Amino acid sequence: MTSPDLVRVLTVLLEAGAERVPAEDLAWAPDMTPALNHAISMQYVIRKRTAHGTRFSLSESGYTALGLEPPRHMTVSRFIRSLFRR
């Protein structure tokens, strides 16, 4: 079971596009910070800092926490990454 605050954070990201969403495009309220930090620490959300700013994406476990099936391309990329890990 996922807390309502966490679901709210994941839903905002999903509705904004779910992948590589610029931080400024997300309608996260300041009171959502603890839930966002929890989502990042639980690896539901991936935060990537780039030269163009911070981007957020839902991970496979983020989709699962929302009760959704992750996109097929995520499964392929996970398999390819696993080939290069020891």
Rank of each mutant, 00 (worst) to 15 (best):
M1L: 00
M1F: 01
T2K: 04
P4V: 00
P4S: 09
D5V: 09
L6H: 06
L6E: 01
V7F: 14
V7T: 14
R8L: 13
V9I: 04
L10W: 02
T11Q: 08
V12E: 03
E15N: 10
E15H: 06
A16G: 02
G17Q: 04
G17A: 09
A18F: 00
A18P: 09
E19V: 02
E19L: 05
E19A: 10
P22Y: 08
P22T: 09
A23D: 00
E24C: 11
E24V: 15
D25A: 13
L26V: 03
W28T: 01
W28P: 05
A29C: 10
A29S: 13
P30Y: 09
P30K: 14
D31P: 01
M32G: 08
M32K: 09
T33P: 03
T33F: 13
P34R: 10
P34S: 12
A35F: 06
L36N: 00
L36W: 11
N37D: 15
N37L: 15
H38T: 13
A39C: 03
A39L: 01
I40R: 00
I40M: 10
I40K: 04
S41V: 14
Q43H: 14
Q43P: 05
Q43I: 01
Y44P: 03
R47Q: 04
T50P: 13
A51F: 11
R55F: 13
R55L: 14
F56Y: 12
F56M: 08
S57N: 07
S59G: 12
S59Q: 09
S61C: 01
S61V: 01
G62P: 02
G62Q: 07
G62F: 02
Y63C: 08
T64H: 14
T64A: 15
G67D: 02
G67Q: 05
P70W: 00
P71L: 05
P71Y: 06
H73N: 05
H73R: 04
H73Y: 00
T75Y: 08
T75Q: 15
T75R: 15
V76G: 01
S77E: 09
S77G: 00
S77M: 07
R78M: 02
F79R: 04
R81E: 14
R81K: 06
F84L: 11
R85H: 05
R85L: 00
R86E: 13
